[in-house]
Nucleic acid binder design. Sequence first.
DNA 1: TTTAAACATATTGTCGACAATAAGAGTTGA
DNA 2: TCAACTCTTATTGTCGACAATATGTTTAAA
Lengths: 227, 227
Amino acid sequence: MLPYAPEQGTLADIASHRLAHSIVTGELAQGQKLNEAELAERFGMGRGPLREALRHLEGMRLVTRVPNAGARVVVLDRKTLSDLYAVREALEGMACRIAATQMTDDEIAQLSALLDQHEAQIKKQGGKVYAQNEGDLDFHFQIARGSRNQMLMNMLGSEQYQLLRMCRHRTSRNAQRTGPALQQHRQIVTALAQRDGELAEMLMRRHIQGAWQSIDEMIAKEEESAE
Amino acid sequence: MLPYAPEQGTLADIASHRLAHSIVTGELAQGQKLNEAELAERFGMGRGPLREALRHLEGMRLVTRVPNAGARVVVLDRKTLSDLYAVREALEGMACRIAATQMTDDEIAQLSALLDQHEAQIKKQGGKVYAQNEGDLDFHFQIARGSRNQMLMNMLGSEQYQLLRMCRHRTSRNAQRTGPALQQHRQIVTALAQRDGELAEMLMRRHIQGAWQSIDEMIAKEEESAE
DNA sequence: TTTAAACATATTGTCGACAATAAGAGTTGA
DNA sequence: TCAACTCTTATTGTCGACAATATGTTTAAA
């Protein structure tokens, strides 16, 4: 389901996946230096594949590299996240508009079923898990798939997806926007089912704006308490 | 001016730049197999840095890699380009809207001067150079800069930028859309100067739609004559 | 005490050689 | 003639060692 496949293939791919996971979950702190020799040893491989993995992660914007000075985990500051959400709004809005004409009835039904599943999960676990769980992102990715635009899927999937997950883990402590989010998702699916692309786009844009607003507040609090 | 820097730094960076250039200019044909040993020898370096460069180019979507089967130059078929232009429309539209509020008067004046420059160049060279030249892309990139959104700049700059240049070279033989393009650029600058983001976005979206329409026709002819 | 230069250390950048895998040619059997 | 199999060859994947560069520390001079 997740666009980033399990560990298989070349060692560089494995390292890339494991590193991405560690970065996204916060196991590797933001801005932390990534020592090639140390990581290579931990993963049981040579430095060659690991360097390739770092170059790949650099392309995904999960790490930043400086020549002769090594790689560091990217730092998601307020401005970066603001930029990310602005881009997301444009891209996912477009995805929604196109998906309204391209998705099959069956796919839309599946989307609806996915939301049922989320709702059940919320009820069971007390509502605190939705927004920070992968479920929310699955929903967004399915819509991207519905646009039939491969480039869009790549951008939202392999790149932004990871940054978003990273952001989730950072702000998961005090996340409670699950109720409105699910409701907004429902509205979007309804618009899709009615084949109303304009409405679907507008709802998605609002949804993402709301998400950003919520996250922005959290970051503000975080920065405040950090002083 | 161009977002992709000159040849300096590590060997992997140099190889990455040279390869990107060769791919974009069509020197390396689409779909062509990229032999590591051969390229490493041509560039006078070992295979290590070259492999890193290929991983980087993979991230930029200029090459596609299959494990144990090597890398190939990406193939820009009709669908891929269509997807690319759809994404561009969304992103550059957004860039325009934000740039209308963020760019300084000075920057807008510079943008206007850039167009004067283009106009002079067209008069001198007979109008056939504009659309396929870098000038057009410079214009678009300057607006992306005006949005102050670093992520947007990265996306439009280092990634899509290259694919677009590639597309230009492919369809440059029969390019003649320079007149309307310049005029549309003028309209966009006017809207920016009036700080009318909505209008600027609309004009940019139309501009890109028109460009795609033009390119789509060319591809259709090309595929026709190829049979 | 501060600054700067020189050294020692750690880390990155690069190369060459070897192992593993895939692609192709050639052979053998039906 | 075609199919499947084997062997050869070419290419990719990986490792370990060395060179180049940056970092941190010590030492010496102002």
